[in-house]
């Protein structure tokens, strides 16, 4: 077991990539805190049925004070926090000229401020422990952009910059900070893109298939493991060679 007795928080763990990441980390022995706006009972049930340990906590990543309370709750219960996966994210695609300000704000607040809030909430504990893994879920859109995704691409580009800077700040305390930039992954969130332009998307992927959440979870597992101790401040693309 690569993560025996490690304590991991995964945000946005009720479904999609977050759920698969949580199940994957738990299968390697991590105790999971599944955090989401909605309850994560299904995720917790799957983990427990497989013999793992998990709890579901409801919280809004856009609220720093909520995240700080949750971090304290986790420390009180498990006495440490080893891994944080900042996965919670939303999309509100729309053309720039017609995008309501609130759609831009919501996406940036959830994806980028959410990453800041959760990281800030756990960083002190990881500093005390002199160990920790922070793994942010970015996107190929962070560097390639995407039609109708000014809000999403901006939030994910922000995550890349945040990742590099936080990695430098926390390195002396042996806390690593990395980001994974998935390409087009088959989830509920990407269904619409795939429905509209599957052929175009496929032409951009040399490996000629969409990614699946396990492709991302496997990279999260690697970054969370001891094998990745010397990797920090990196943006790792898991995108089938995407040429956007």
């Amino acid at each position: 077991m690569k993560l025996q007795n490690k304590v991991a928080i995964v945000t946005g763990a009720s479904r999609g990539i977050g759920k698969v990441i949580a199940i994957c980390l738990a299968s390697e022995g991590a105790k999971l805190i599944c955090l989401d706006l909605n309850d994560c009972d299904n995720t917790v049930k799957e983990i427990e049925e497989a013999g793992g340990t998990a709890i579901s906590l409801k919280g809004n990543v856009t609220k720093l004070d909520e995240m700080e309370k949750i971090a304290q709750e986790v420390i009180d219960k498990f006495e440490r926090i080893d891994i944080l996966v900042n996965n919670a994210g939303v999309t509100r695609d729309g053309l720039l000229l017609t995008m309501p300000e609130e759609d831009f704000r919501l996406v940036v607040e959830t994806n980028l401020f959410g990453t800041f809030n959760c990281t800030k909430a756990v960083a002190q504990q990881m500093m005390f422990q002199k160990s920790g893994r922070i793994i942010n879920i970015s996107s190929v859109a962070s560097t390639k952009g995407g039609r109708g995704q000014t809000n999403y691409a901006a939030s994910k580009a922000g995550i890349n910059g945040f990742t590099r800077s936080a990695a430098v700040e926390l390195a002396s305390k042996k806390v690593t900070v990395n980001a994974i930039a998935p390409g087009v992954i088959e989830t509920e969130m990407s269904q619409e893109v795939v429905r509209r332009a599957k052929d175009i998307v496929m032409d951009m992927i040399p490996l000629k298939r969409l990614g699946n959440p396990n492709d991302i979870a496997n990279m999260v597992l690697f970054l969370a493991s001891d094998e990745a101790a010397y990797i920090t401040g990196q943006i790792l693309y898991v995108d089938g060679g995407f040429r956007g």
Partner: peptide, 12 residues
Amino acid sequence: AESLDLLDIVFR
């Protein structure tokens, strides 16, 4: 010590 260490000390 480095600058982050001062914060670490303050927190402790």
